[in-house]
């Protein structure tokens, strides 16, 4: 992969990495509660570089809270988050993109009034260096970097088969397509760490298979480490390298799909609420 100069910071080694093996993400003793309701309770685990890491658990287990804490939308009560060699008590959301982290949301978080192409290209706006004035006047540098961003966005549309929807306002598209647009927006900046919050909710089997392929490619060819919340246990088992299981805000299992399948604590937690596995969270 040839990287353009603007991507160079991605390839630089991180300054200080406390763990023995370099990890893309580590959470250490993360606790979080909302007005007395505990969402996360001392959760610790690591995500190795290049890994596809699934986070599963019954409804309300704290999976989304975990991603929200990692992306700085929630401020943990205690514990730390390690991202790319930096340690945070509260992750600064504004710096996520610069840290090479991007994410999708459980409920779509798209820019409804903008076209598909604009939505995806927005994922690169933080890299643009030209000032407002240069953009308005149309200086060559501003035009060039913009054209470059849109070229990348178009390439990603092609990758996710979104060319037909290119100029449509995103609010007018079907749910499944919007999900893919959001993934495209997250991928366009070539993140080192990609957080996916139920990317396949509400998708058909074919769509799921297609998306599974896309996620693999994102890891294998785009070099993204992936953290994935997903309810479809079949997808999770087939796709992920390691799985973390949350229940009532606690980490009750952590290991390979094989290990998780045989983990008694996980089986106990799930047997009671087995119907939730397919039902989806719906919140």
């Amino acid at each position: 992969m040839t990287a353009t100069p603007s991507e160079a910071p991605h390839l630089q080694p991180s300054a200080t990495q406390p763990q023995a093996a370099p990890s893309a993400l580590a959470v250490d003793g993360l606790s979080l509660s909302f007005g007395g309701v505990t969402a996360l309770n001392g959760v610790s685990f690591t995500v190795a570089v290049g890994e596809i890491r699934a986070v599963i658990g019954p409804n309300g287990a704290g999976k989304s809270s975990l991603l929200n804490a990692v992306s700085g939308l929630y401020r943990p009560d205690s514990g730390r988050v390690w991202l790319g060699g930096h340690s945070f008590a509260a992750v600064p959301t504004d710096r996520l993109a610069a840290l090479g982290v991007s994410r999708t949301f459980q409920n779509l978080a798209l820019f409804k009034g903008l076209s598909v192409l604009d939505n995806v290209a927005a994922g690169l706006t933080h890299r643009l260096r030209a000032g407002v004035l240069a953009q308005v006047i149309g200086l060559p540098t501003a035009r060039r970097e913009r054209a470059d961003a849109y070229d990348r966005a178009e390439a990603l549309l092609a990758f996710l088969h979104l060319e037909d929807a290119r100029d449509r306002p995103v609010g007018t598209l079907p749910y499944g397509v919007q999900k893919r647009v959001e993934l495209a927006r997250a991928l366009v900046a070539r993140p080192r760490l990609l957080l996916l919050d139920e990317p396949m909710a509400g998708m058909t089997l074919t769509e799921k298979q297609e998306l599974t392929g896309c996620i693999r490619v994102a890891r294998d060819d785009l070099g993204a480490t992936i953290v994935l919340i997903e309810h479809d246990i079949g997808v999770v088992m087939g796709l992920s390298d390691r799985i973390a299981v949350l229940d009532y805000g606690r980490l009750i299992g952590d290991g390979t799909p094989e290990a998780i399948r045989n983990n008694q604590a996980v089986i106990d937690a799930y047997l009671g609420v087995a119907h939730d596995l397919e039902a989806g969270e719906g919140i």
């Binding site: 909302f34 989304s64 929200n68 939308l73 949301f105 459980q106 409920n107 978080a109 919140i283």
Partner: peptide, 10 residues
């Protein structure tokens, strides 16, 4: 004064 801090659900 009395409003609760809303929790953003995303």
């Amino acid at each position: 004064l009395f409003g609760a801090k809303p929790v953003e659900r995303v």
